[in-house]
Amino acid sequence: MAVVTYRDALTQALREELQRDDRVFLIGEEVAQYNGAYKVSKGLLDEFGPMRIVDTPITELGFAGVGVGAAMVGLRPIVEFMTWNFALLAIDEVVNAAAKMRYMSGGQFTMPMVFRGPNGAALQLGAQHSQAWESWFAHIPGLKVCTPATPADAKGLLKSAIRDDNPVVFLEGEMLYNTKGEVPDGEHLVPFGVADLKREGDHCSVITHGKMALVAMKVADDLAKEGINIDVVDLRTVRPIDVEAISRSVQKTNRAVVLEEGWEICGMGSQVVDFIQRECFDDLDAPVLRVHQEDVPMPYAKNLERAAKPDAGKAIAAIKKVMYLD
């Protein structure tokens, strides 16, 4: 297995699927000549030409709608948002058009398309550029939502997303592009709705997804030195969501912490806790705790930003609390 960056793993996925199916095209701001704002589409214009790697004006609603229209008549668009924060300008096309077209046409029109781009806070980008949107899109029937944490999952999930006949919201971690990991050689597909147990332990379950899965893995490694062994359940996709994997882990450890990048109210964690109380009511030895961003817009100042974000320290405190070790 080769060690590659998360960015390169995504590029591999795009290249392989563009080669595999000529109905697939990539459209978005700066994806072609500029090689992508985050260089995920580097080299693709040279290889596939301007009809398949399409630069757009700054017109999120417009080009998201172009993707929807092209998908309706049989193409397989990949719509890149420079960041998901900008995608709010296009949410009508994602939610009102792409997600509902199949249902409201009685199954006559399918929407084989991917909306992708970086999600979540980076470093000191301020309130409008530091947001995690998964709970917004996971709320919508008709969409699928991927949140890969590792290069292998990024590649495998993106290839699955491009081959999926449904609209897929693909949330890449903005802070993950330079992270490295092993990616299986050859054809590598990761199915949707199958969580990955990234660490194994009996003492507590940490259920997480996206960038926070990396935090959870680090926490697991640190706590192992103290003799505390945790399960890290990386959901990988939050719609569909692997309820069985959540239950299996909590029924084993009897304790759970739900870790996510977004805000508390109506966050992904709210939904996970609901599954846990329904499926594992008699298994719990402690209330389930959640770790998430503080309930404020992201501040700019370095110290305030650090205080606002969920992190390893907050996760460890929550784990110790559910284990009655604090």
């Binding site: 229209g69 092209a70 009508d92």
Partner: peptide, 15 residues
């Protein structure tokens, strides 16, 4: 909302 979708259909025709 459907006006950009029409542009997308036009794009597919051209594609």
């Amino acid at each position: 909302g459907h006006v950009p979708i029409a542009a997308g259909v036009g794009f597919a025709i051209k594609y």
